[in-house]
Simulated assay, not measured.
Amino acid sequence: MLYNPLGRSGINVSRVCLGSMTWGVQNNQADADEQIAYALDHGVNFIDTAEMYAVPPTPDTYGKTEQIIGDWLARNKQRRDELVIATKIAGNGLSWVRNGQDITRQAVIEAVDHSLQRLQTDVIDLYQLHWPNRTSPHFAKQWPGMINFSDANTQQHIDGMLDILLGLNDCVQAGKIKHCGLSDDTPWGISQYLRLSEQYNLPRMVSIQNEFSLLHAKDWPYLIEQCIHEDVAYLPWSPLATGLLSGKYQNDARPNGSRWTLVQRNGLFRDTKQAHHAVSEYAEIAHSINLSPAQLALAWCNQVDGVSSTIIGATSMTQLKDNIAAFSITLSPTVIEQINNVFRRYPMPF
């Protein structure tokens, strides 16, 4: 396993981050225990969760994934220092989470305390803002005209960011969190947080996790260029496009218990003809070099300049083993060229 710096945190994290959002719905405690054990045995030291998980989010599943990780930590206290644990505060819009309100200084303080209790740990290594208070061009809102940025109150958003940073600073000073990061944000969001942290001597964002895959690479090049030059770790989530790039949903297939058989908060917006055509062509390339389609997609993501650690998820040990193995694969220049030819024909299929 290879490791990269987590921005300027001083922490090195594995190139593979174990995502956990299926734990509590598609996976139970025993499944999680097995996944954690396998990941640790293969050099993975990075686990990502969120207060909102399990997914799909519901009032009944809120906090369950953190509780599952906390159960493991309580039984494996001697291994706590082997793990970099990342969690996230939910943004606005979920009625059962702080009445759907914005993230604020006070919300951060309260949410951190609750996450610490569920995780059964004294400190969170990386605490992230799950999505910004403002509407951002993620979750199929990247198309021109879907968001009117001019309608936003710029100063109000900046004031809100400062308020959040003050809450994060309270938690850092109290020893409850070590480092802070973003999720589902933009170059403007990154730049404002970095500017505010420098101006007011507040915690600096060390990372950002956004959706990134062969089917959804809109962060290349501008956001990733900024991450490189500002020393902010870039952490792709959903590198398999919610399983689409594994090929398991081709020809309208819906494997029993798979994510696409569950209710989706934002709908199945990735389920387009263009996306399926792209997946078929990527699968042909994968099979020609004796890789699974998932391994091809993950190996591609791993080799993208600027990617620090890729967040993977699995509902079975077979999937987990296949996924982790992908990060020891080096794609040849010829294969990269074949992938690029497909990518240029399907640059943004959903």
Results as ranks from 00 to 15, higher is better:
39 A>E: 03
72 W>D: 01
275 A>N: 08
215 L>G: 13
32 A>T: 08
199 Q>V: 09
37 A>K: 14
197 S>L: 04
303 Q>G: 01
73 L>K: 01
190 I>W: 10
326 A>Q: 10
185 D>I: 01
226 Q>Y: 13
228 I>Q: 10
220 W>E: 15
228 I>W: 07
242 T>A: 11
261 T>G: 14
142 Q>E: 14
274 Q>A: 14
271 D>N: 13
45 N>L: 03
121 T>L: 02
253 A>M: 00
89 I>W: 03
240 L>F: 02
159 D>P: 15
233 A>L: 05
155 Q>E: 15
208 I>W: 06
186 T>S: 15
221 P>M: 10
245 L>M: 08
63 G>S: 04
293 P>Q: 11
37 A>Q: 12
180 C>Y: 14
10 G>N: 14
54 A>W: 04
112 V>Q: 04
127 Y>S: 07
308 S>Y: 00
336 I>T: 07
125 D>E: 15
225 E>M: 14
197 S>Q: 10
344 R>P: 00
107 A>I: 00
107 A>N: 12
265 R>Q: 13
242 T>L: 08
252 D>A: 06
323 N>V: 03
307 V>G: 08
247 G>D: 11
8 R>M: 13
205 M>G: 05
350 F>Y: 14
262 L>H: 12
177 I>K: 00
219 D>N: 09
57 P>G: 04
319 Q>R: 08
41 D>I: 02
226 Q>T: 10
109 I>N: 05
228 I>Y: 03
136 S>I: 07
100 G>R: 00
232 V>N: 08
118 R>V: 13
245 L>H: 03
243 G>K: 01
238 S>V: 03
53 Y>L: 12
160 G>A: 02
56 P>D: 06
211 E>W: 02
117 Q>F: 06
160 G>F: 06
148 N>A: 15
188 W>C: 02
241 A>M: 09
123 V>I: 12
11 I>R: 08
15 R>A: 14
228 I>C: 07
201 N>C: 03
252 D>E: 11
259 R>W: 00
158 I>K: 07
289 I>T: 05
64 K>A: 06
20 S>H: 03
149 F>P: 00
193 Y>F: 15
88 K>R: 07
255 P>F: 04
214 L>M: 15
101 Q>C: 02
180 C>T: 14
186 T>M: 12
238 S>H: 02
239 P>K: 00
199 Q>D: 00
127 Y>V: 07
223 L>W: 03
298 L>Q: 06
288 S>V: 10
60 D>V: 09
115 S>F: 07
250 Q>S: 13
226 Q>G: 11
24 G>T: 08
11 I>D: 06
209 Q>V: 04
260 W>K: 01
293 P>M: 08
255 P>H: 12
227 C>P: 14
